[in-house]
Design a binder for these strands. Structure first.
Length: 287
RNA sequence: AGGAGUGUAGCUCAGUUGGCCAGAGCAGCGGUCUCCAAAACCGCAGGUCGUGAGUUCGAGCCUCACCGCUCCUG
């Protein structure tokens, strides 16, 4: 049985298209969005409305508390279960999402890299200081020159490579086997907008979200500790709204900054989808 | 109208006593991506230095005129 998949940057119209397809074929939507996973991050993450969620069953929305951490494996665990359930019911999954890394991993799986959470935290602490990064680089330079050559600029990835090296005795590069095949048949589209047009949509949506109560929502979630959560704190806009509430940003400046941050995010997504999803047919938007 | 000030990348500005090819931050664009991905990281482009003339071997920096903007006084 076929599985559908729609990817695209934020504000590109994925949700609407997924809804349309799902209704037409009697499918169920699986959100592949790192932030819609979290409860109470509603307006700010442009979640489908309750009404839309009633029209078609949605999965992986509101499944985590903001204080819970999430990473690619947690997501895969949840998403694979959702796909399994949907198929068991004889329904068609319609994956829709803007978190490219998650979508790709769901479609193709990940290589089996060794890991050790506890060790990871130790290393994180060990290389935390001012000179931590240079010490990390020095160590990797001799321990795993290959990985160092490829990752030397990125602290986070170097750290992970060191973890793999220490756990397995081998380079992280040895575990990464290039492009993986799709794990199941999929019909996929990538929504592509002219940048200026998408930016305009982002601006309009941001304005509407702010007027729809996003500021109150942010105030509540910040009071609940959002800014100190392991993963959810990354959600765009909330921190800026906090600045606004603290009087450091005017309403106009707030809106402008959110639009810029969102457009920058959309650009990164654009780059990702352009290169990482050969299975997806490009759909020029609008229409 | 008179006086003072100002006019350098899309924006905010640096540019020493006139002399490397005019710089930065932000924005923009491109790229990477296998346990933080709404993240992390790498790279690129862009300026008739308001306009015109003059001084000088040489002017963004000096002189003059004009234009624009700002402030002050009437």
């Amino acid at each position: 049985m076929q599985t559908y998949c729609i990817v695209g940057p934020t504000a590109s119209g994925k949700s609407a298209m997924a809804l349309e397809i799902a209704e037409k074929i009697g499918g169920e939507i699986v959100s592949a969005d790192s932030m819609q996973l979290y409860r109470t991050l509603d307006i700010g993450c442009a979640k489908p409305t309750k009404e839309e969620q009633r029209r078609v069953p949605h999965h992986l929305i509101d499944v985590l508390d903001i204080h819970e951490p999430c990473d690619i494996f947690r997501f895969l665990q949840l998403a694979e279960k959702a796909l399994e359930d949907i198929r068991a019911r004889g329904k068609v999954p319609v994956i829709a999402g803007g978190t490219g890394f998650y979508v790709k991993a769901l479609l193709r799986g990940l290589d089996d890299l060794p890991g050790d959470r506890a060790l990871r935290e130790e290393l994180e602490a060990e290389y935390a200081g001012e000179d931590g990064f240079s010490r990390l680089r020095e160590r990797m330079k001799i321990l795993d020159p290959g990985a160092f050559a490829k990752l030397s600029d990125c602290r986070r990835k170097l750290l992970r490579a060191l973890e793999v090296r220490l756990v397995s005795g081998r380079s992280i590069l040895d575990f990464q086997n290039g492009p993986r095949p799709l794990r199941f048949p999929v019909r996929a589209w990538s929504l592509v907008w002219p940048p200026e047009l998408l930016r305009e949509r982002i601006a309009q949506r941001t304005h509407a979200m702010l007027n729809a109560g996003w500021i109150d929502e942010a105030e509540r979630t910040i009071a609940a500790g959002l800014l100190h959560t392991p993963t959810a704190h990354q959600a765009l806009g909330y921190r800026l709204i906090g600045e606004h509430l603290a009087g450091n940003l005017s309403r106009a400046e707030l809106e402008e900054k959110i639009i810029i941050a969102t457009a920058q995010f959309a650009r990164r997504q654009r780059t990702w989808f352009r290169h990482q999803h050969p299975e997806a047919a490009v759909l020029e938007m609008p229409q």
